[in-house]
Amino acid sequence: MTAFRLGLIINPLAGLGGPAALKGSDGVATEALARGSEPRASERTRLALQCLLPLRERLQFLTFPGAMGADLLRELGFAYQVLGSLNDAATSAEDTKQAVQRLQEAGCALILFAGGDGTARDVCSVVREGQPVLGIPAGVKIHSGVYAISPRAAGELAARLVEGGLVRLASGEVRDLDEAALREGRVAARWYGELTVPEEGHFMQQTKQAGMESEELVLLELADWLQDSMEDGVRYVFGPGSTLHGLAQNLGLETTLLGVDVIENGQVLARDVTEAQLFELVEGHPSRLLVTAIGGQGHILGRGNQQISPRVVRAIGLDHLRVVATKRKLGTLQGRPLLVDSGDPVLDDSFPAAVRVWAGYKEELLYPLGWAAGSMQP
């Protein structure tokens, strides 16, 4: 079984200023330690990771030396890989930024970070747009909307993702208070940006509460979102299936139900193309690939869409692949992952452990992905 990879960054200095009545920890860690404060970020992270202990055999963490993650993971018995090194025992904002960049390069499905608003600012300053992250609250100031309500809530949410639960993605604001002003009795908050974070909650429970999902309405919403985001001069490859066929119909386009079609500038450029024709159309040309999942099975590649070959996927780029599926269709998987079976093991292995799924108007879910061979079945 291929392990599910999570990134972990602990800011060991987070929260030190609170017990020392310093209103924060930015730039005052030495003073806080002198006043008797003890590091708490590791213990807060421990509470989150304990929720993942039952899944330990299915996980591999990517982390950083010592107190930034490796020490705690070793103590808890998780499999982990250490990236990079530290030049000093005391970590800095630069260490956090470099850690985020390394984890992104490694393709982590989700980056967990423990800290406060200052840590969230550091993450926000270097994270790529759309990279899912989740904060474990460990700082003095937790005003940003990128943290779980508690360390245990962060751990439970990560566990749901690993187990195959639907995890909705949303934008969370990063805000921070001016600590110098706060120490003078003035509250001055500032907006620094937004991060992509998973929302707490499990889709299936929400569905039972909210009632049946309207497939037709969802396809209308998806069509509106796609129309709003379509770029001129970019070729959009629509894979087969009723979901994408219905989506195209709501855009006023006549596509094929079981074929692969190419759209450009609001028009059908090519209909029911072969693999060779498709490759010729996308090679060297800006393109996007839209595929859906086979209901009940979960395949997104290698079942009924062999025209979308490994060389076509590489020509378009994995970054430009989007899965389009209603929540009802994802619900038929009953927690099993989406599957790829392109016929090229190297390509299949290059997919991330979880993919973004368009499920409604400006609504994305983060959903686990595995190999059709079963190596990543929960």
Rank of each mutant, 00 (worst) to 15 (best):
S42A: 09
N87C: 07
V28Y: 07
L83I: 12
L53A: 05
R35E: 02
Q81K: 13
G69I: 02
A21P: 05
R40T: 01
A93F: 00
G18P: 06
V28C: 04
E94Y: 04
A20F: 15
T96Q: 10
R56I: 11
P54T: 04
G27H: 10
G24W: 15
E31L: 13
G15S: 12
S85V: 10
A99V: 07
K97R: 13
E57G: 13
V28W: 12
T96N: 15
S42H: 05
T96P: 10
Q104N: 05
G36R: 11
Q50H: 01
T30E: 13
R56T: 10
G77D: 06
S42F: 01
G17M: 15
L49N: 06
A106E: 04
F78N: 10
R44A: 01
Y80L: 10
L33H: 08
L86T: 03
A29P: 02
A14P: 00
D95T: 15
T63K: 06
S25R: 13
E43V: 10
D95Q: 08
M68G: 00
L76T: 06
D95I: 11
V82W: 14
L22E: 13
E57M: 08
C51M: 00
V82P: 07
P39F: 14
L62I: 13
G69Y: 01
L103D: 04
V100M: 00
G84P: 03
A89V: 05
